[in-house]
């Protein structure tokens, strides 16, 4: 036994771990402080009130919210199927639908273009019969964002459904409640916190979407030029405007982190 009689476990950090850890913190935080230091704080209100900036901001908010709504409508049922179905091939299906989590977004954009472009596999028929071409419209933005962000919702909700108490669903069944009524009246309220968390995550991911959107929807001010694309395009010509909008996205990110702190800041991530 050592002479130390602390009841606390030993918390000294060996230097081969401490030094890289400090470097890692600096590496992650220095760029953000650079952004904060270079922000033209006094001109910030005018910069954000610029019509072009406002337009990008509004478009981003609308499309991210629409993408989240679409993800909820399609993703929650998908999560339920993935969590509850015992059919063979479900795990393979899960792998495929969560692929966009790791797929480079720009590849997603190319894939969307190949599928729904004017001359795409499905898009050519849509164009032929309706005269409607999806790419480079606001709908394309929403679809690109949903494609990239929906898996976040699916994964979060599926995890919640898996760990939800099946016994309560059984109890509901014995009380005469059919499967869909049970889902609506018992399961959904039980997984509510995860549903909120998944929606916030999805929304934040959609808001920051760049690669797929730029590829599939392009960059038309007012229709497809979302905030990240606007920032990228104005960085050379008007860096102050780009920095101002970057700050907005940073604030959104910090807010999301604060909202999800119970799930993430406690050790042991449960996505």
């Amino acid at each position: 036994m050592s002479a130390r009689r602390d009841t606390e476990p030993d918390t000294r950090v060996p230097w081969p771990l401490a030094v890289p850890a400090v470097l890692a913190v600096l590496f992650l935080l220095l760029p953000l402080s650079g952004l904060l230091l270079r922000t033209p704080w006094t001109e910030l209100p005018q910069l954000l009130a610029e019509p072009a900036a406002l337009q990008a901001l509004r478009l981003s908010l609308i499309t991210a919210t629409a993408a989240t709504a679409l993800s909820l409508f399609l993703g929650v049922p998908l999560a339920w199927v993935l969590a509850r179905s015992r059919r063979p091939g479900i795990s393979l299906l899960r792998a495929f639908v969560t692929l966009p989590l790791v797929l480079p977004p720009v590849v997603g954009g190319v894939a969307l273009l190949m599928a729904f472009g004017r001359r795409g596999i499905f898009g050519q028929y849509i164009y032929e019969y309706t005269g409607f071409s999806l790419p480079f419209t606001v709908w394309a933005v929403i679809i690109a964002e949903t494609f990239v962000a929906m898996p976040f919702l699916v994964v979060t909700v599926e995890g919640a459904l898996r760990s939800a108490d099946r016994g309560l669903e059984e109890a509901a069944a014995t009380l005469g409640s059919g499967p869909f009524a049970t889902f609506r009246r018992v399961t959904l309220p039980l997984i509510w916190p995860s549903l909120i968390a998944g929606s916030v995550l999805t929304w934040a991911r959609a808001l920051g979407e760049f690669g797929a959107t730029a590829t599939f929807a392009g960059s038309f001010p007012g229709t497809t030029q979302t905030m990240p694309i606007y920032i990228y395009e104005t960085m050379q010509s008007e860096p102050d405007a780009a920095i101002a909008l970057s700050l907005v996205l940073l604030v959104v990110s910090v807010t999301v982190l604060a909202l999800l702190r119970d799930r993430w800041l406690n050790s042991g991530t449960r996505l």
Partner: peptide, 25 residues
Amino acid sequence: GLVFQDYRLFPHLSVLDNVAFAPRA
């Protein structure tokens, strides 16, 4: 009328709504 060993009351509903669950269903 199944009474489970662990009761399985719906945690998100009041006692009244738990008891009203079956008629509602």
